[in-house]
Amino acid sequence: MILRKSKNKDDVVIKVSHVSKHFNVYYDKANTLKERMIFFNRNKKEVRNVLQDINLEIKKGETVALIGVNGSGKSTLLKLLTKIIYPNSGTIEIKGKLTSLLELGAGFHPDFSGRENIYFNASIFGLNKTQIDKRIDDIIAFSELGEYIDNPIRTYSSGMYMRLAFAVAINVDADILLIDEVLAVGDQHFQEKCLNKMKELKSEGKTMVFVSHSMDAVKFLCDRSVWLYNGKIREDGNTDKVIKEYLKECA
């Protein structure tokens, strides 16, 4: 089964068809029953369409960038792909193991050491103990934390925290990686290291969806870009071409 899949390079691993998502924005939400009964007229809400009729197919091994201004629905689309939220209409099909680097360090506990937190964090990504044992040296090496790994992470600087979180997420060994503007922290050296690691994963045939405002990173990593504009796909195609159009609009 897996063999057949890897042979056929053109396999679609992410298929988004006719997906729409809206959020109800309450002005003053009545959360308890009492408030609901007393302020029944206060429950005014506004429906905000975040994504409208999105169609997207991503094939195995592709590295796709999502670009667009703030509020254009990039993060919402990634959240839909990870199944943190569900679409109001349309369907999303995913083939293979998917890991998201939406928010790094989920489940990190400040009082525990870096090493223990690697176990917590990796277990949330669905790894079992033996799998984590096998990867732990790679993770620690990648994080460059050295001896600090056994200190409680509340003593870490924000850069160290980020490095540890990224090191876990990148070593989860998923088929599909979703990455949301997480490189903003970290120094130049670590950013480059992450980009190179992602390039390496790309050459191993992993599928990646990458959200970034850094056009240099997008050009470095992605062959294909999708430009989201007001919840719709405005442009989809070769990175150089899409970025040129996008920058023209932004200017």
Partner: peptide
């Protein structure tokens, strides 16, 4: 916290 961040 974790529900909003990751799928499990």
């Amino acid at each position: 916290g974790i529900i909003k961040k990751v799928y499990f």
